[in-house]
């Protein structure tokens, strides 16, 4: 019993971070219909930024987040303007965007590989290997902080989407792009903003990735596969779905890892992907085409 509770704790403390990682991906898909295969590549890029900032400036990876997020936001805006704005204006070209994001992932990976070589790295702040003891249970400190922070960022994002005028416009664009355009939402500007936000979220999660996991430039393929399965599980474009999917799957993955060994834990995500596609293709909270 105690061991099960311990595993749930371990799962949940990673799940929050997974949810943050998936949120940017699902948001960009929800608003623009772009499956951003480069999402995890940008996470790894941000992890490298956090790594070097820690190594040479002594900047804690958690404290680097307020700097990494705005920078990645601007990167996102630039990428959107340069690569996606025109493609989105023409519905026939929308399908091409997945190839563009694939190319983008390869380019980011290539540049990182050229600059930093493909060796394992990881940021080691003082709390990286510590744990807090709560009664009989271990709370890994790094995971705990990362998940708390992830949930705080997701909460902020949710409040922004729910209560601000721009948030309304983003949700409206997600629900129905034409209708949003008709009521006067500048969908091009909203798309640019959301691409920036998605990248900023990738940046924040990259900073956390840098001390939770080891990484190297081509590591992002593994990540993007896991994140896509989370997004499909939750329902493409649904933030709450991604959160529930991330928490549930990382708990299951913790059990699988304890039972069969850690190499099997990623399999959990892919199996869940198959199952969800078979029994509920629209995902937990995804919308079926209704109109």
């Amino acid at each position: 019993m105690n061991q099960s509770i311990q595993l749930v704790i371990l799962g949940l403390t990673l799940g929050g971070v997974f949810a943050l990682m998936a949120s940017g991906l699902t948001l960009i898909f929800g608003v623009m219909g772009i499956v951003n295969l480069a999402h995890a590549a940008f996470m790894v890029l941000a992890a490298f930024v956090a790594f070097w900032a820690f190594k040479y400036l002594g900047l804690d990876p958690i404290l680097s987040i307020p700097f990494v997020m705005p920078i990645m936001f601007l990167v996102g805006v630039a990428v959107y303007r340069l690569l996606f704005a025109r493609a989105l204006a023409d519905p026939h070209k929308r399908g091409v965007t997945v190839l563009v994001t694939f190319a983008l992932a390869l380019i980011v990976e290539g540049v990182l590989g050229y600059l930093f070589s493909n060796i394992y790295r990881s940021t080691r702040p003082s709390y990286a290997s510590d744990a807090i003891l709560v009664g009989p249970f271990y709370l890994p400190e790094a995971q705990f902080y990362a998940t708390l922070l992830s949930i705080a960022i997701l909460g902020g994002l949710w409040a922004f989407l729910q209560y601000t005028r721009t948030g309304y416009a983003i949700r409206a664009t997600m629900h129905n792009r034409t209708a949003a355009e008709v009521v006067g939402v500048n969908v091009d500007r909203i798309s640019m903003l959301v691409f920036g936000i998605g990248m900023a979220l990738a940046g924040a999660s990259g900073s956390m990735l840098s001390f939770l996991f080891s990484f190297y430039p081509s590591k992002h393929w593994e990540w993007v596969a896991i994140l896509l399965s989370l997004v499909v599980l939750g329902g493409m474009g649904s933030l709450l779905g991604a959160l529930i999917g991330a928490l549930a799957l990382s708990v299951i993955a913790a059990f699988v890892s304890a039972e069969f060994g850690p190499t099997w834990s990623p399999v959990t995500f892919y199996l869940a992907l198959f199952v969800i596609l078979l029994v509920r293709p629209q995902g937990l909270l995804g919308k079926k085409p209704e109109f």
Binding site: Y168, R171, A172, A180, V182, V183
Partner: peptide, 30 residues
């Protein structure tokens, strides 16, 4: 739209997962 020309497209383009009030509020977005 700001000049006063409003278009109601054919495909019932509402915001399906928003409430009636929220839909009308979106009409005043600008």
């Amino acid at each position: 739209l700001r000049r006063g020309i409003c278009f109601v497209p054919q495909d019932r383009s509402l915001f399906p997962d928003m409430t009636v009030t929220e839909n009308i509020r979106m009409g005043g977005y600008i």
